[in-house]
């Protein structure tokens, strides 16, 4: 099985270590991973801003880059969700349909396709997990608190396999952090207020590290943490699952 690794634009440019951790983790789990060199973005920034027509060319490029892989894996729930839900803007060719059906968020891929039940990782810290909305309610990587259905979380399930980790529960387990794409600047005041409340929830409950399946949420939270000098760090879930260093 040949896996196509999608590293979203902002991870590529600002968080290469998240891309590296994702790649190393997949390789450790025995995957044959390829990285199409001409990839850019999934098109979501334009779509969420109301300009999905401007996203068509970017989306076409995405399909062209990834159509030859057996599975496409991305360390983001948000972009994966965009490809699945919103690539109806493209002509539904076999390639488009194939790409939409075979894209997976990282944790989803590890639990559902690789069916991994142990992870060789160590991370002796108190970790709070932020369930990003598009992963949770879009891809259903975890059960929403709004529904009366049994709880599960694919990402928490993986985190619980890490040695030494202590998972910290927060008061509002799946409230949005306030990033929201261009929302973070067009609705700056609300976005930041939501982010502050989210960070405070983690800090109040003793988290030393906040992790998530989406770097976009973490980038927003980290911006607040650094400005407000909160005693907590952010790491993408791949960085924890790929970690073998003791405290």
């Amino acid at each position: 099985m040949k896996i196509g690794l999608f590293i979203p634009c902002y991870i590529d440019q600002f968080y290469p270590k998240v891309g590296i951790a994702t790649l190393e983790l997949l390789e450790k789990l025995g995957c044959n991973v390829g990285y199409p060199m001409d990839q850019t973005c999934c098109g979501q920034p334009m779509g969420n801003s109301g300009s999905e027509k401007e996203a068509v060319k970017t989306a076409e490029l995405f399909v062209k880059n990834f159509q030859t892989y057996d599975c496409i894996v991305a360390p983001t729930g948000s972009c994966a969700c965009y490809v699945k839900e919103h690539y109806d803007i493209l002509k539904q060719t076999d390639a488009t349909k194939y790409v939409r059906e075979n894209i997976y968020e990282l944790a989803e891929f590890i639990t559902d396709i690789l069916k991994v039940d142990q992870i060789d990782a160590t991370f002796p810290y108190k970790v709070g997990f932020h369930s990003s909305c598009h992963g949770q309610r879009g891809l259903r990587l975890a059960q929403s608190s709004e529904l009366n259905l049994p709880f599960f979380s694919k990402q928490k399930q993986l985190l619980s396999m890490v040695k030494g980790i202590e998972i910290v529960e927060i008061d509002r387990r799946d409230e949005c952090c306030g990033f929201g794409g261009t929302f973070c600047v067009t609705e700056e005041a609300v976005s930041v207020k939501m982010g502050k409340d989210k960070v405070a929830d983690f800090v109040r409950n003793g988290a030393e590290v906040i992790t998530s399946g989406d770097v976009s949420c973490l980038m927003h939270l980290d911006g607040i943490i650094k400005r407000q000098k909160y005693p907590v760090k952010v790491l993408h879930i791949a960085e924890i699952l790929n970690n073998t260093i003791e405290r």
Binding site: Q13, Y15, G19, G195, M219, G223, I224
Partner: peptide, 15 residues
Amino acid sequence: QRELPSVPTESFRDW
């Protein structure tokens, strides 16, 4: 009200 991410010298693609 937020800091920007610190800037890496190379992109993932470069690496």
